[in-house]
Amino acid sequence: MSISTPRGSEEGLHEILRVAAHCFMERGYAETSIDDVARRLGSTKGRIYHFFASKADLFFAVAEEGMDRNFAAIGPYLDAAGRAMDRLKSMALAHTMSMIENRAYQRSVWEGVAIHLRGATTPEQRDRLAALIAYRDSYSDRFRAALKAAKEEGDLQFKDAGIALQLMFLALNSPIFWYSPRHGETVEDRLNLAQQCVEFALRGLGAPAAMAGMTM
């Protein structure tokens, strides 16, 4: 799924998405208004309504952009040759780095799922929400396949693939809740954080220490 540009420049659209993502991350969907986004942009509401019909439309565009970035991150590894465990590790690391580097967008993905689970939707939200959940499920299926293949090859030990998948994502997604950039932080610092999340997740799924560990 990709964001379409109803009118105007793609650059202007993505600036609105970037600012809106931070507003939704800081205040949540319910407490964020179009006025809040416009104020942070330093523009009028009309600039936002030029692209988006409503706050819900804007919110789901942010969440969809987050999922687009996740798919782009793991794409190079989906058909990689070799053991499934190596493929899974690469996908997991790319996913976790996306949680860190695209944290504002990923919080909207998470909140969209939470809205779905609560059943707190309006007719305006329902179709976009269903599409977001389907998009997310399609993404999760890539990891489910890699998990099962790694187990079949003897590199992971777990009883239920569905439970294993959820527990793995709890660890890999966790930076969207606790991570915040530090002064002087480097890409290597963020990579180290992501590697630790991946190692923790894979060890929990029964991977041997030597296989779960990652080197810089």
Rank of each mutant, 00 (worst) to 15 (best):
G162H: 03
D141C: 02
D160N: 15
S174F: 01
A94T: 08
R87K: 14
A114V: 07
A171H: 14
R126Q: 11
I163T: 12
K159T: 13
G112R: 01
A73T: 01
K148W: 08
L78S: 03
D141G: 02
A81K: 13
R83Q: 13
A131F: 01
G154H: 11
Y77R: 02
T96E: 08
F143S: 06
I74F: 01
A164Q: 09
E111C: 07
A120Q: 11
T122Y: 00
E111P: 11
L147D: 10
I133S: 00
A80F: 04
A84F: 09
T96I: 10
A130K: 12
L165Q: 03
A171Y: 15
D86A: 14
R87T: 14
L129V: 00
F158L: 05
E111L: 07
W110E: 06
R136A: 09
D141T: 07
V113Q: 12
P123K: 06
K151L: 04
Q106P: 03
G119I: 07
M99G: 02
R126F: 04
M91A: 10
L156M: 09
L78A: 04
P123Y: 06
G112I: 05
Q157F: 06
G112W: 02
S174D: 01
M85W: 06
I74M: 02
I74K: 02
L117M: 08
S174W: 00
L78I: 15
A164R: 03
D86L: 09
A94E: 05
W110C: 04
P175Y: 06
L156P: 07
R144I: 13
D160A: 13
A94G: 09
Q125S: 01
H95M: 10
V113K: 12
L156T: 02
S98P: 05
A145M: 12
I115C: 00
M91L: 10
E153A: 11
L156G: 08
A72V: 07
A150Q: 13
F71V: 07
G75I: 01
G119Q: 02
Q157K: 14
L167K: 15
Y105S: 05
Q157H: 11
A130R: 14
L132F: 01
L117K: 11
F143M: 10
A146Y: 02
S108N: 05
L156A: 06
E152V: 09
R142I: 08
S174A: 08
S90Y: 05
R142S: 09
Y77I: 00
N173Q: 11
D141F: 10
A149L: 12
A84C: 07
Q106L: 04
A72N: 07
G154D: 05
Y139R: 03
H116S: 07
L147S: 13
L147C: 14
S98Q: 11
L93G: 12
G75S: 09
I115N: 01
R118Y: 03
D160E: 11
S108I: 06
E124R: 03
D127P: 00
T122F: 00
L147A: 14
L147R: 15
I100C: 05
Q166H: 07
N173H: 12
S174Y: 00
R87N: 11
N173Y: 06
M91Y: 10
D141Q: 15
S138E: 08
D127T: 00
E124Q: 09
A84S: 15
L93F: 11
A94Q: 09
D141H: 11
S98F: 02
A81D: 13
L170C: 14
G112C: 05
